[in-house]
């Protein structure tokens, strides 16, 4: 099983969607891997892809190719993970904030959350404040997850918080920001209720804020 999971991780890093889906199928058929083990390898792959972007080895197309490998694998894995889910814990609206088109991290998180029992409304990338606000209102979401790859998206995050406050909605929804560069200080500056940097911390903060 360890070999399969490691190869699964390598396939995602290489952006080989067919291989990652085949290995996901092998993981399901063997039936031994825990959700945490799968998410650990997804997070490790995502971290390596991000590192390769930072060092100039990968660019946006390569990152998106890896994102597709994750998406294809998660299609296979979601039912398997769902069987091992926690009880349904809440409704989530999620998207990557305006000015940011990073998809890979968000898509992994969306799949992980769905597999963990949450009802997730994924708004995609480069999402405007209005779209976030409208979807939160429409779904009566418990959690709003704002994906932001770099701290340069701070104005967009602040704008969303300000819009929630000005419309009297801030008390109705818990807000979590997430991205590789997020820190406790950054989260405090923005005024969110929680922050996360990877799959495991996202699941943990969601469970904590919804009392699951």
């Amino acid at each position: 099983m360890k070999d399969i999971l490691e190869n699964f991780e390598l396939a995602i890093i290489a952006g080989n969607a067919d291989t990652s889906a085949d290995l996901a199928d092998a993981i399901v058929r063997q039936g031994q891997a825990t959700a945490d083990e799968i998410f650990d390898h997804l997070a490790a792959a995502m971290k390596e892809v991000g590192a390769r972007y930072e060092t100039g080895e990968y660019f946006i197309p390569e990152m998106l190719r890896s994102a597709e490998a994750v998406e294809k694998a998660m299609t296979v894995l979601e039912p398997y993970l769902f069987e091992r889910r926690h009880e349904q814990a809440g409704i989530i609206v999620m998207g990557t904030v305006k000015g940011d088109i990073h998809n890979i991290g968000k898509n992994i998180i969306v799949s992980a959350l769905r597999a963990s029992g949450y009802e997730v409304h994924d708004l995609g990338v480069n999402v405007s404040t209005e779209k976030f606000i409208n979807k939160v209102k429409e779904t009566s979401a418990d959690l709003l997850l704002l994906s932001a790859f770099t701290t340069s998206t701070k104005p967009a995050l602040l704008d969303i918080i300000a819009a929630l406050e000005s419309r009297g909605m801030r008390g109705d929804v818990k807000v979590i920001s997430g991205g590789a560069s997020h820190s406790e200080d950054f989260a405090r500056e923005i005024g969110v209720d929680g922050f996360a940097t990877d799959v495991k911390s996202t699941l943990a903060v969601c469970r904590s804020l919804t009392g699951d």
Binding site: P61, E62, R65, E68, I101, N103
Partner: peptide, 10 residues
């Protein structure tokens, strides 16, 4: 669309 355009490279 930028997202689709970037995925088209592969």
């Amino acid at each position: 669309g930028l997202y689709d355009f970037m995925t088209d490279f592969y």
